[in-house]
């Protein structure tokens, strides 16, 4: 089974780049963008299996990005990342169709597990 195609959407550039580097080494196809608008452009141009989406971003925040993303790519699974550790806002995301949420800082292994589960769900629903 191929590894899922991932899109990292986070305004924290060093964090996004680290994730890209680490996940690439683990045979994921992964890209990173640093704002919501760029994320929407990317998903229009190509399909991603799982989007790792930060909630708090300048301009278009994670929830707004999620809403638009789900309109354009309803099949794409989204994992919400949040440094706020607020269950409330993360659960808002779940209600809008996100698959799961994780709080920063997170272990890479935990993130990988969530990515795998999200991808399996996507494959089941296809």
């Amino acid at each position: 089974m191929r590894k899922p195609r991932l899109l990292i959407v986070d305004d924290e550039i060093p964090f996004a780049r680290n994730l890209v580097w680490l996940l690439s080494r683990r045979d994921y196809e992964v890209e990173a963008v640093y704002d919501g608008a760029s994320a929407l452009r990317s998903i229009e141009e190509q399909e991603f299996d799982v989007v790792i989406l930060d909630l708090k971003m300048p301009g278009m925040d994670g929830i707004a990005t999620l809403k638009e993303l789900k309109k354009k790519r309803p099949d794409t699974e989204v994992i919400i990342l949040t440094g706020y550790a607020s269950v409330d806002s993360a659960l808002d995301g779940l209600k809008l169709g996100a698959y799961d949420y994780a709080t920063k800082p997170l272990q890479l292994s935990d993130l990988e597990e969530k990515i795998t589960q999200a991808y399996e769900r996507k494959r089941l629903l296809e």
Binding site: N18, Y84, A85, P105
Partner: peptide
């Protein structure tokens, strides 16, 4: 605290992932 916590969590995420990079 909520504001501080959020602001600190992001750098912590960077530190953790960078540590993971060095480990790799």
């Amino acid at each position: 605290a909520a504001g501080v916590a959020h602001e600190i969590n992001n750098p912590l995420a960077v530190i953790l992932t960078t540590s993971q990079v060095v480990r790799d």
